[in-house]
Design a protein around this nucleic acid. Structure first.
Length: 514
RNA sequence: GAGCCCCUAGCUCAGCUGGCUAGAGCACCUCACUUUUAAUGAGGGGGUCCAGGGUUCGAGCCCCUGGGGGCUCACCA
């Protein structure tokens, strides 16, 4: 690959740094004492505006801009916490006869993006900006490629923003360096998972890990990634769900288990779907879906409060409040409320007629469950903005769910809908192995009718149930979409560090190097 | 999968109805400058205009084919 002029210059500067006897990639640790944000937060000034504390600080980061004025200069240093201005004067960092450290290293061979460490004192410039007056400068690492260089003026206008989504996702390291505001999304993601884990631990559940490589894919309706194990010479699948394994652990005698799990689905990719995504699932023995609704409310209220410092979240024109209790509405009541149609007791033909009246697209592979799902998806889901539990689904679309204790044809299942999107899916787990086998057989029948998402029968799971599983409530919560909601992001790519991208072919199109 | 839009310097983008050697700002290089802040002043370098084909005296621009990307819509979470 031909180097650009700027890359050549950086390699030359690298060599010249070595010529000065300075290692451009030093091995020794650098004793950082402060982060940029710490300094800005902790700085104290007297009545004349002089800084009275922080008279010895050591920090490190990337040089993001330089303003050289002969024998003195200003620069911006960016570390993990943010940016702070440095003041560098020749006679401070090179006090003796030899001025090479300033004249050559700092002024000529230092490129934007290089890592340096500085030791100095905090002061306020004439124009009032808190800065670090550098007394010692240490070179810590060379950057051989120029970073994109967005600039921001006083009014907050950004120029030359690095915003091409493809380049941002392909080179997330560049994106987060020059657009550090996006780091907050990932910090929130991390806090969300931490706070959920804390809640589940406090509930007395045990964190577990279950297989990602599975001999048969079960627990959800989706197309899997298929692979092959060489030694065993058998096909294997990347898990589309971990539900059936977690329930085996309930059979095994753990009263409560949870797993933050990557799921893999070999399906379309768009702004709400990535081939791998994260869900937290937890299963608790001797509970039912009513208990799970209470618990789900508490979990989300706790998590959202931890992430955003409030239970309220702005989503477009709406303000969503995650403080419980949430509205609970049966599927049939929700459809009645939003369409005026009554699906209670309707058979397949009647449902098809209702769907037609509501201009919902239907085809012959759709059973009762799918038809209800389509009607709900088309006419109701998007209208549910505040957290709402939709309960009591048709049995046909819930092959792993216990039949409703009193309502014929329905199951004890709920989904939590927020801002028109499904956030959680939960139910009283089906623990009757004979019923479970019959449900699997219905799935096989749906598959025969052409439903390519129908579930496969898992004999080992059935065997586990035959040994006996206590009544259990289970739930799955989609982490990525929850993060999207909490951070106001419209695409899943923005909440994943490394979203799946098409492989990058040779040198066609806009596959530029930065 | 369907529709619409885009691809020009390291980055962000202009480039008219097809007509000089393809431009700007930032970045980069040289010089000056000890409190600047989109630092400033002077000078300079940098292009496979996504690729291939076609029309034309002449194509960044028009046509065809291909590649890559974005947005909107439909389906899986």
């Amino acid at each position: 690959m031909e180097l650009t002029d700027q890359e050549k210059t950086r390699r030359e500067n690298l060599a010249k740094i070595r010529d000065l006897g300075i290692d451009p990639f030093p091995a020794a640790l650098f004793p950082v004492t402060h982060l940029a944000a710490d300094i800005l937060a902790k700085v104290e000034t007297d009545e004349e505006g002089k800084v009275t504390n922080l008279q010895e600080v050591t920090l490190a980061g990337r040089i993001m801009s330089q303003r050289i004025m002969g024998k003195a200069a200003f620069a911006n240093l960016q570390d993990s916490s943010g940016r702070i201005q440095l003041y560098v004067s020749r006679d401070d960092i090179a006090p003796g006869e030899d001025k090479a450290l300033y004249n050559d290293l700092f002024k000529k061979y230092l490129d934007l993006g290089d890592f340096i460490g500085v030791k100095g004192f905090v002061f306020k410039t004439r124009t009032g900006e808190i800065s670090v007056h550098v007394k010692e400068l240490t070179f810590l690492g060379k950057s051989l490629r120029p970073l994109p260089s967005p600039k921001r003026d006083d009014e907050g206008h950004v120029y030359d923003e690095f915003k091409d989504p493809e380049l941002r996702y392909r080179m997330r390291y560049v994106d987060l360096t020059v657009n550090p505001q996006y780091k907050e999304i990932f910090r929130k993601r991390s806090r969300l998972i931490t706070s959920m884990r804390q809640f589940l631990d406090d509930l007395g559940l045990m964190e577990v890990e279950t297989p990602i490589l599975q001999p048969i894919h079960g627990g959800a309706a989706a197309r899997p990634f298929k692979t092959h194990h060489n030694t065993l010479d058998v096909p294997m699948y990347l898990r589309i769900a971990n539900e059936l394994y977690l329930k085996r652990l309930i059979v095994a005698g753990f009263d409560g288990v949870y797993e933050f799990a990557k799921m893999f689905r070999n399906e379309g990719m768009d702004r709400t779907h990535n081939p791998e995504f994260t869900a937290v699932e937890f299963y608790v023995a001797y509970k039912d879906y009513n208990w799970m609704m209470d618990t789900c409310e508490q979990l989300l209220e706790h998590a959202v409060q931890s992430v955003n410092g409030t239970t309220k979240v702005k989503a477009g024109d709406h303000e969503i409040d995650f403080r419980g209790p949430y509205r609970r509405l049966t599927m049939a009541d929700a459809i009645r409320e939003h369409t005026g149609e009554n699906i209670d007791g309707a058979d397949e033909a009647e449902l098809r007629a209702i769907a037609k009246r509501l201009h919902v697209h239907v085809d012959n592979t759709m059973g009762r469950g799918k038809l209800v799902d389509e009607i709900f998806g088309e006419h109701v889901e998007a209208k549910l903005i505040q957290p709402t539990f939709i309960t009591d689904y048709p049995v046909e679309m819930s092959p792993l769910t216990k039949k409703h204790r009193s309502k014929e044809g329905l199951v004890e299942r709920f989904e939590l809908i927020v801002n028109g999107k499904e956030i959680a899916n939960a139910y009283s787990e089906l623990n009757d192995p004979i019923d479970q086998r019959a449900r699997f057989e219905e799935q096989v029948e749906l598959a025969r009718r052409g439903d390519d998402e129908a579930m496969a029968t898992d004999e080992d799971f059935l065997r586990a149930l035959e040994y006996g599983m206590p009544p259990t409530a289970g739930i799955g919560i989609g982490i990525d979409r929850l993060v999207m909601l909490l951070t106001g992001q419209k695409s899943i790519q923005e909440v994943l560090f490394f979203p799946q991208m098409k492989p990058q072919p040779g040198s066609t199109g806009k596959n530029k190097e930065v």
